[in-house]
Design a protein around this nucleic acid. Sequence first.
DNA 1: GTTTCGGCATAACGATCGTTACAGTAGGAC
DNA 2: GTCCTACTGTAACGATCGTTATGCCGAAAC
Lengths: 202, 202
Amino acid sequence: MTTDLASRPARQRLLAAAAELFYESGIAATGVDAVLRRAGVSPATMYAHFAGKDALVAAYLEERHAAWRRTWDEALAERTDPIDRLLSVFDAVARYRQREGNQRGCGFLAAATELPPGHPGHHWLDADSRLLTDRLRELAVEAGATGPDDLAATLLLLYDGVLNRYARAATTPGLAADDPLARARRLAAAWVASALREPSGS
Amino acid sequence: MTTDLASRPARQRLLAAAAELFYESGIAATGVDAVLRRAGVSPATMYAHFAGKDALVAAYLEERHAAWRRTWDEALAERTDPIDRLLSVFDAVARYRQREGNQRGCGFLAAATELPPGHPGHHWLDADSRLLTDRLRELAVEAGATGPDDLAATLLLLYDGVLNRYARAATTPGLAADDPLARARRLAAAWVASALREPSGS
DNA sequence: GTTTCGGCATAACGATCGTTACAGTAGGAC
DNA sequence: GTCCTACTGTAACGATCGTTATGCCGAAAC
């Protein structure tokens, strides 16, 4: 289809503008006009590509989810040691953070508090949570953990802690004294080692 | 002043309604009309008590901050052992959660992503972050930690992780398999013990 | 009695929101 | 040339937002 190829620039610009504004200023706070102005796109063109603002928000979350998964896949492909693969989620955060420049914490968490209950974007929030839970569990099994659910839950706790501290540091300056990501990775490494040494240590 | 006493009911009802709606539906998403309807208060009365919506939001955050500090104070007063006092932040979370019924994660984190940069409510978000940082550091010193900043940062990481996991569980059902608070307290206890045993373990 | 004051209800204000309609233009296909 | 397609610019729609104004009620003060 020539349609898809020709329509790419406008759609791409819209998604790029939406990603910046939605992440920086919040989804509810940024109007459609602001996205249109930043993208340099007329209203009619936007509504030709997306059914409405909700659809644009859902597309933004979908792209964000895909980018995060791609980043984790890359970090995962570079590791062979099971423990390194288990801890690769933290490497992926560092890579995603420096590549996409998301200094304001997890965009999905911010979106979760803003979206009304029936919003179509919730599908990608769920997908993000499920990807984290399922993949960490699989990697825990690969690493030979006797309680993979338990180990995955601990890593999830640390992972979410990192994102939350990033979010807090962005709004309250003067707290960025240490790097929560490195700290979480150290804690996780120590915990994984002890969990694999003595299987009863939940 | 009789004014304060007589004006309490309306003001109290407004703050109670604002607390429910702002926390459940988000600050930007809930209009003033919804707060007025839930509180059973007329617009003129509200604008006699608060300069505007921003002032109401700030008052809501102030009250929330005071309630959280009060809860932590109570939990802290029941402990005498330095390590128990250091870990009391998790007990306070449990108490605050069951008392105030905030099943949707940290209200401050949700507010931080919604408030525009110059909003007066930011003062209480900063106060919340500073209370956590400063008090945890003091308690770490009391416990005899050689690196109190380091230990406080670790506890903060786990604390923020708990709140983030609560927020995620609220929006994505089926993830509430385990209790992140108990897990975080166990991890923190183990880390505190090892940090006090060998002071170099950062 | 009257006055005063906190609160209520209704309505309206201007602004902004998401959305749609209408007219017009640049460029490639044939 | 004509046709088609993707896009632009402007304007307007109804709805909702935060805010203000107007008028009325009830109870306590004097």
